[in-house]
């Protein structure tokens, strides 16, 4: 049996009609709805693929306040997960990525009663200011091989390896698709462009069955839910939350922008005097000044 873990995150819904801001320009969290983050949802889809294709069992984990249950529930709809884990403790509050990874490392360690998790999926990054660092840091702490920006993968259960394609796009360079092979266990962050491909009728029928089951399970999701604190995750309080975070947010300010609305200036090109200031401006901008 393939064991799959997924790390997800509850995030503000930034879509119009759901997001609200305070008058000082900061996010109004009370008025903004929270949802399973879109990148987390993609990670869930990848885990679900393992279930349909390889009969995997799925365990989902998230660190957050009790309300993060919502995200677990939504993730169960997507994955038909067997297990939901909420890592929730006042001590975890204010954690940066290193302190978060510390919690998630132990969280993954507790999945399925402490068995080996063959693949852990997480989203590419969160949309509310997170950094795309949590996945790789958790992987490193777990000692798992890390694969980022994965767009496609297949598992060879006999050889216990995963064969994955990952996207590498670097500034000014051609995009590269790199195909790699890695032994299990492996930690994968899924690229936003990932799409599960189910290409036989039987897989599609199985997928329907699991989806339906997932919806059903999620109606009674608490039955699948385990809540962990720092204590039963065996965590050192000094290494989690604000106490365990190397970084702090020192200051938040508006990014100064010179420009407001455009006040259009109409130029008649037939008079060279009109053109000259424009030329200077273009050259300045071309030089990046």
């Amino acid at each position: 049996m393939l064991n799959v873990g997924v790390i997800i995150k509850l995030e503000p819904d930034f879509s119009e009609g759901n997001v609200s801001y305070n008058s000082d320009g900061t996010l109004n969290r009370a008025e903004t709805k929270n949802i399973l983050g879109p990148h987390s949802a993609v990670a869930c889809n990848a885990a679900f693929y393992c279930k349909v294709k390889y009969g995997a069992q799925i365990s989902i984990g998230t660190m957050g306040p009790p309300i993060a249950e919502t995200a677990l529930r939504q993730a169960q709809v997507l994955t038909n997960a067997e297990e939901l884990n909420l890592y929730s403790d006042r001590l975890f509050a204010g954690a940066d990525t290193l302190a978060t990874a510390e919690v998630l490392k132990n969280g993954v360690g507790k999945m399925f009663g402490g068995g080996i998790i063959d693949i852990v999926f997480s989203g590419h990054r969160a949309s509310d200011g997170e950094t795309g660092q949590t996945g790789p840091q958790t992987a490193w702490k777990l000692g798992y091989t890390f694969l980022g920006n994965v767009i496609e993968f297949n598992i060879d259960s006999d050889r216990k390896v995963v064969i994955a394609k990952r996207l590498i796009s670097l500034q000014g360079m051609d995009t590269i698709i790199e195909e790699v092979e890695s032994p299990l266990p492996v930690f994968i962050t899924i690229d936003p462009s990932y799409r599960s491909i189910y290409n036989t009728v039987s897989q599609r029928l199985l997928l329907n069955k699991f989806r339906k089951e997932g919806r059903k399970r999620s109606e009674d999701y608490r039955q699948f839910l385990k809540v962990y604190t720092s204590k039963n995750l065996d965590l050192d309080p000094k290494r989690v939350g604000l106490q365990g975070s190397p970084t702090i947010v020192y200051r938040v300010e508006k990014i100064p922008r010179a420009r407001t609305n455009r006040k259009t200036e109409i130029i008649d090109p037939s008079n060279p005097n009109n053109i000259m200031p424009l030329i200077t401006k273009i050259i300045q901008l071309a030089r990046g000044k």
């Binding site: 940066d96 990525t97 795309g132 790789p136 840091q137 490193w140 670097l170 190397p246 970084t247």
Partner: peptide, 18 residues
């Protein structure tokens, strides 16, 4: 795509923040 992950794992290994 490379540095973002590398920075995370290197700093995790060096046990510092980024």
């Amino acid at each position: 795509n490379i540095g973002r992950h590398l920075s995370s794992t290197v700093l995790a290994e060096l046990d510092s923040g980024l």
